[in-house]
Amino acid sequence: MASIYDFNAAQLSGEDVPLANYKGDVLLIVNTASKCGFTPQYEGLETLHKELSGKGFTVLGFPCNQFGKQEPGDAEEIANFCKLTYDVSFPMFAKIDVNGPSAHPLYEFLKDEAKGMMGSKSIKWNFTKFLVDRDGNVVKRFGPQDTPEKIRAEVEALL
């Protein structure tokens, strides 16, 4: 059976990173976008990351341009936006697809493990979040409207 730790993903820098590097951490995996109504959630994600990383928590950001073309930038533009606008310190990965034939294998796994509303598999919009426990189990999917502040207690319960 596949595990979250069986996947690799390229960071914005281009470096291929095994997700096994995060073994033992609680993870919040988020598909992000720079020009979305939910983009201010970067601030809450960064706050969660900074305040809880010492307890073994990491946010992983995956830019995606599939929803309203709201992540049009290249890796350098995304990195600059995240750093300059929200001082993002959590790992940001290369832009990916989360749905369709080119969907990143990690996202195919996440969608299989935690279905959306009414059992749907596809990601509906930017800032969908997947909570993963310390053992690499996908615990829950949160919709874009579920802010980092709203889900903090569920994150902390796993720490």
Rank of each mutant, 00 (worst) to 15 (best):
P40R: 12
E113F: 00
E77C: 09
D133S: 12
K140W: 00
H104G: 15
L45K: 07
Y107L: 11
L60S: 08
A114E: 03
V17M: 12
T58Q: 08
G37E: 08
K115M: 06
T39P: 05
K121N: 09
K23H: 11
V132W: 06
S89F: 05
V17D: 10
A114T: 07
Y42A: 00
E76D: 12
L84I: 11
F142L: 00
T39Y: 04
V26G: 04
M92G: 10
A20L: 05
G68M: 08
Y86G: 01
C36E: 04
K95I: 14
I96L: 09
N65D: 15
F38H: 03
L131Q: 03
M118S: 07
L19Y: 10
Y22V: 02
P91L: 02
P101W: 01
K111F: 01
C82F: 00
F109R: 14
A20T: 06
C64H: 10
V26I: 13
I96E: 13
N99P: 07
E46Y: 11
K35G: 09
S89V: 08
G61S: 09
A79T: 00
V139M: 05
W125R: 01
F57I: 08
A33V: 03
T58H: 06
Q66L: 03
E71P: 06
G68S: 06
A33I: 02
E108D: 14
S34R: 09
N137D: 09
K115A: 15
M117S: 10
L106N: 02
D25I: 01
D87N: 14
E108H: 08
L106T: 10
V17H: 10
S89P: 00
P63K: 07
L52I: 04
S89Y: 00
I96R: 13
I123K: 09
V98S: 01
P40Q: 10
E76Y: 04
R141C: 10
N21D: 15
Q41F: 02
P105R: 15
R134C: 15
A20Q: 05
V88D: 13
K23Y: 07
M92Y: 09
S120P: 01
A94Q: 15
D87Y: 04
E113M: 02
V98R: 00
L48W: 02
K35N: 12
E71R: 03
T47E: 15
L131V: 02
S102L: 14
F81E: 13
C82H: 04
E76W: 06
E113K: 15
P18Q: 06
N21Y: 11
N137Q: 08
A94W: 06
K69H: 11
L131K: 03
G119A: 07
F130S: 05
T47F: 05
K69V: 06
L110M: 11
F90H: 04
L131T: 02
F62M: 09
P63F: 13
E71K: 05
V139P: 06
G73M: 08
F109M: 08
L110H: 09
R141S: 07
S122N: 10
Q70K: 01
G68R: 09
L48C: 10
G54A: 12
L131H: 03
T58C: 05
K50M: 14
I123Q: 10
D16Y: 01
D112M: 11
Y22S: 05
F81L: 00
R141T: 07
P91K: 04
N31F: 04
